[in-house]
């Protein structure tokens, strides 16, 4: 107990010692919100000036994610797929999930079952409108995942997990990676560079929505998979 106390005091000293230079350094950064800070005048200015036209998305965040910095987003899709691979490799697979012994109240049960389809439609709306509205593939995917998790709370994880065969689940989870890789390779003939999107607006639109859908479905399936694996992990 004494040792723990000494450790806490030592940590407190360490953190206090860190706090001073951190705070001192941070207040010397350009103040947030000022239009003449480098964060706004350099690359960002270019994005805002011509990003919508060149990137093909009025929502510049989507343009940056899917077009300008597509490789980062590919990495992001891969990280979350890797997380599922990792969880599955460590914990066992979804089929080991066992039902939660405490049934939820009938009201919760009813409300969630009622909400399910609406959440799914909203998720789809968020996914396909990502280029004009806030939102996009991953946000919609999270909503899809959240819907599956909610459903598995009232229906029991195994029923939801088994709604689709184990084999299809894996393919669904990899959708993001596979679609992204395909669009990236198509960039070579269409735009001259890997990860490039074509200049022709119609085709670019189609590929953007394909990317969003891939990321959304893949992300949602992965998040649900993470939940299934964790919910049943210690009994595998």
């Amino acid at each position: 107990m004494n040792r723990r106390r000494a450790g806490r005091i030592l940590t407190a000293v360490l953190i206090a010692a860190l706090a001073v230079p951190l705070m001192y350094g941070m207040v010397q950064l350009p103040a947030p919100g000022h239009a003449d800070a480098p964060a706004h005048t350099n690359v960002s200015a270019g994005y805002i000036e011509r990003g919508a036209e060149l990137g093909g998305s009025e929502n510049l965040v989507t343009g940056v994610l899917l077009n300008f910095r597509a490789l980062d987003t590919f990495g992001e899709v891969l990280v979350i797929f890797t997380a599922w691979l990792a969880v599955a490799a460590v914990a066992g697979t979804a089929s080991n999930a066992e039902r939660d012994p405490v049934p939820p109240s009938p009201v919760v049960d009813y409300v969630i079952r009622l909400l399910g389809p609406f959440i799914a439609i909203f998720a789809l709306f968020v996914i396909v409108n990502g280029h004009v509205l806030p939102g996009g593939g991953f946000q919609g995917g999270v909503l899809l995942g959240a819907m599956l998790i909610l459903l598995s709370l009232v229906m029991d994880a195994e029923t939801v997990a088994r709604a689709v065969s184990a084999r299809s689940w894996i393919w669904l989870r990899a959708t993001g990676v596979l679609v992204f890789a395909m669009v990236a390779v198509m960039g070579l003939p269409l735009a001259g560079y890997l990860f490039g999107l074509p200049d022709e607006p119609g085709l670019r639109q189609v590929l953007t929505v394909a990317l969003e859908l891939g990321i959304g479905i893949g992300g949602g399936a992965v998040l649900a998979g993470l939940f299934f694996a964790i919910a049943g992990a210690d009994r595998s």
Binding site: V61, V64, V79, I80, A83, V90, A91, I230, A233, D234
Partner: peptide
């Protein structure tokens, strides 16, 4: 607002949830 930091943070959030879920599974083990 500059879109670049927003895009970075979106990626960061995904990475964070990935790491968190792996950590939780390891905790269960």
């Amino acid at each position: 607002a500059s879109p670049l930091p927003h895009a970075l943070v979106l990626t960061g959030i995904v990475v964070a949830v990935s790491v968190t879920s792996l950590a939780l599974v390891l905790i269960l083990r």
